[in-house]
Design a protein around this nucleic acid. Structure first.
Length: 767
DNA sequence: ATACCCTTCATTTTT
DNA sequence: TGAAGGGTAT
């Protein structure tokens, strides 16, 4: 009798093959997490392995938390001692534990994207660079790629091609120097630094190699170069490394994930075993067949075919709408229908999309329908301005070298320290090679400061010094209260009497609550460890997000965020060329067919999230950058076999597009937002369709040029010389007209002045 | 020093 | 469309 009896044969093989390297190719919904948790339970309970000698690496903090919980159910308290975490969290921990051996200051700060941008902006100023000539964004991304490829500044500069690359090399060098001066690491550094340090300190590495007798790595298809190297380093001695992944679900190559890590596993470890988990326990037969068919179009695969014992279930609904707004309305109506029929309740439903921007119409329609929902991955709690301000103060207390944080709060709340003043101090600090903070202690040396500025700077320095003193003396909660009080931040929030300020107050209070909770739950809670945790949090990890989900709402998120999740009813929307696959992937296609394949994998991930019912939608017209743009159906749609698709009965019966609108002709002034002239309300079909039948993909009624042009003809009232009414400017006469369709712009003479107006935005009515 | 207005730019994706 | 940054007016 073994724990593993609960597994199917391949799962059991994967969980019980503990000696030597093992690659588990786990298809979507094949019980991957189950294998991982049972494997650990088996090691501890049946093979008597000490839990602290096991290392499990996951892709997200959330996955780490869930894994720990599930292991706890199998082996109890012992689960606490297993090392479980993301690569980033584990690396941050290693850097602090081994700071002394590595010659580091353990109080380093972890810079997020925001901090990184702030630092880069400052570097551009210091190096006298023009950010119009060279986009900081692009520099940051190139530096990040370089780090992920383990190329350090020196080598980057040496191998640079042309003056531009050399310049980026210089910026990279300056960026790294600044990070070190600030005693800070960015996300990429956390990984790269550990790998380098282990290379240089083999004795330290040897300790961990010896310690981690068993290593498990989840989502192996999405590991990048440094993560791969770290895995190799740590597994170097025992070689009991179990990598679990699915090459078909590799969706992070754009940010440096290297699919070769999984494809070449058997070459890296010649003695490796490979187990395939191909039985799917999640989806109905039709959904699975669609997924298999779609992914079958990719050429670069290990090869794997999922199967299921489940019934075929319903066919997949492929639904075509006029506009993105209609698409949103259709989805909401369908949800209401399913809810009213008791097919699904709202917490069982997910709406997935390619880009975050697509969430807006959905959100608006959900609100209108008063349906509960949560958007995953919006702005995370720890990125809100007031929260970051407060955290910046706290970071400064443990790491005064952190110039990014220092500059963030030096004049927040306002204390009369302006940009010019800061610049003077900064210049002096740079010239002398001092940190910004230490320069505050010797202001009399800084040239060009007036007495007032000096006084204010001195007071600020005094504030930080006294708070640092408090940090030594009091607990976390009291410290935070002191920061808020003594910095004047609380007073600032209270002075402003607006609803926004009230929201900010609440956020600050919530942060205080989190800190209290953290202090109570962790016996050895320090400010440093708290800051580390918050730095590595993602929106999905926010307690707030969890609470929202628990309320039973519909979940909205990008396809990327949906990885690893499952829902009984799934909508995938926006299946249109240039959106999904993205324009970028299409452009790159000629040079790199991999780009489209990654998009296809993303679609595959989306399809396989669905358990019982799947809707795939696309719109003929979509707002893009504020313009209404004609679209083409995604190439991926053709890859789903017709027999798996349903002639969409729902839309047929309700006939909501045609009827609703034609029933109330001209019910609104020609030009109200949702039905503006550039937004054809209901293009007439050349061949009349049966009453109530909605356009559909398989009816061959793809958007035609004629439909579009016809709609635009409605804009005759916008001819030169006509009088129109403008929402803001009142009555005016059209004096000129440029462009057509969504791009049309008018010059209109109002009483007093002439304005140029984009028809797509302006709310115009005939006057 | 601050506020507002204007222009520009962006849409992948996240640790 | 919108956010965000820069520039100009106050």
């Amino acid at each position: 009798m073994s724990i593993l009896d609960a597994l199917n044969p391949p799962q059991r093989e994967a969980a019980s093959t503990v000696a030597g390297p093992l690659l588990v190719l786990a298809g979507a919904g094949s019980g991957k997490t189950r294998v991982l948790t049972y494997r650990i339970a088996h090691l501890v309970r049946e093979l008597d392995v000490a839990p602290w000698r096991i290392l499990a690496v996951t892709f997200t903090n959330k996955a780490a938390g869930e894994m720990r919980e599930r292991i706890e159910q199998l082996i109890g308290d012992q689960a606490e001692k297993v090392w479980i975490g993301t690569f980033h969290a584990i690396c941050a921990r290693l850097l602090r534990y081994e700071a002394q051996a590595f010659g580091l200051d353990p109080n380093f700060t972890i810079y997020d994207e925001d901090d990184r941008r702030a630092l880069m902006r400052r570097l551009f100023a210091a190096l006298n660079l023009d950010d119009k000539e060279l986009a900081p964004r692009s520099v940051i991304s190139q530096i990040s790629s370089a780090k992920n490829a383990m190329i350090e500044p020196l080598r980057f500069t040496q191998e640079a091609n042309g003056p531009r690359q050399r310049q980026i090399g210089e910026i990279y060098t300056a960026y790294e120097t600044a990070l070190r001066q600030n005693n800070a690491f960015d996300f990429d550094d956390l990984l790269v630094e550990v790998v380098r340090q282990f290379d240089q300190h083999k004795d330290v590495l040897a300790r961990y190699q010896d310690r981690f007798q068993y290593i498990l790595i989840d989502e192996y298809q999405d590991t990048n170069r440094p993560q791969y190297l770290l895995s190799q380093q740590l597994a170097g001695q025992h070689r009991n490394i179990c990598c679990v992944g699915d090459d078909d679900q590799s969706i992070y190559q754009f940010r440096g994930a290297d699919i070769r890590n999984i494809l070449d596993f058997e070459q890296d470890y010649p003695e490796a075993h490979t187990v395939r988990l191909e039985q799917n326990y999640r989806s109905t037969g039709n959904i699975l067949a669609a997924a298999n068919a779609v992914i079958g179009h990719n050429k670069h695969r290990k090869g794997k075919e999922l199967w299921t014992q489940a019934d075929p279930g319903d066919r997949i609904d492929l639904v075509h709408n006029d506009t993105d707004r209609d698409e949103a309305r259709f989805i909401i109506r369908t949800i209401q229908k399913h809810r009213d029929n008791w097919d699904f309740n709202t917490s069982e439903i997910a709406i997935l999309y390619r880009t975050n921007a697509q969430s807006r119409p959905l959100e608006e329609e959900l609100q209108r329908a008063r349906l509960p929902y949560t958007i995953v991955g919006g702005i995370r709690f720890y990125e809100r301005k007031e929260v970051k301000d407060l955290l910046a103060y706290l970071r400064l207390l443990v790491n005064p070298s952190d110039a990014v944080s220092l500059q963030r709060v030096i004049n927040v709340p306002k204390r009369g320290i302006g940009g010019t003043t800061v610049e003077r101090v900064q210049n002096y600090a740079r010239e002398q090679g001092f940190t910004l903070y230490s320069t505050l202690g010797q202001l009399d040396q800084v040239p060009g400061l007036n007495a007032r500025a000096r006084k204010h700077l001195d007071e600020f320095y005094g504030l930080l010094k006294s708070l640092r003193q408090r940090h030594e003396e009091v607990g976390l909660e009291e410290l935070v209260a002191d920061v808020l009080e003594n910095s004047g931040y609380r007073a600032m929030l209270h002075a402003e009497n607006t609803p926004e300020a009230e929201a900010r107050r609440q956020n600050v209070e919530q942060l205080q609550a989190f800190i209290s909770e953290y202090a109570q739950n962790n016996e050895e809670a320090t400010l440093t460890s708290f800051l580390e945790e918050t730095a590595l949090m993602t929106p999905q990890d926010d307690a707030e997000a969890d609470a929202e989900t628990a309320k039973g709402g519909i979940t909205l998120m990008t396809l990327h965020s949906a990885k690893g999740l499952e829902y009984p009813l799934v909508f995938i929307c926006g299946l249109e060329e240039k959106l999904f696959p993205t324009l970028r992937a299409i452009d790159e296609e000629a040079a790199d067919p991999q780009a489209i394949e990654e998009e296809r994998r993303l679609f595959y991930v989306g399809i396989t999230r669905a358990e019982r019912r799947l809707y795939i939608t696309y719109a003929r017209l979509r707002y893009t950058y504020g313009n209404l743009v004609e679209t083409l159906p995604s190439r991926f749609l053709e890859e789903i076999p017709q027999e798996l698709l349903k002639a969409s009965l729902e839309t047929r019966e309700s006939g909501w597009t045609g009827r609703q609108r034609s029933a109330r002709p001209g019910r609104k002034p020609a030009n109200r937002r949702p039905d503006s002239p550039t937004r054809p309300s209901k293009p007439k079909r050349t061949t009349p369709a049966p009453e109530g039948v909605h356009y559909e993909w398989d009816e061959g009624s793809q958007p035609s040029r004629a439909d579009f042009d016809e709609a635009i003809d409605q804009e005759d009232f916008l001819a030169v010389g006509r009088w129109v009414l403008h929402g803001t400017w009142g009555r005016g006469q059209i004096t000129a007209r440029q462009g057509s369709g969504a791009e049309m712009k008018l010059s209109i003479r109002f009483s007093g002045q002439t304005k140029r107006v984009a028809v797509a935005y302006a709310q115009l009515e005939p006057a």
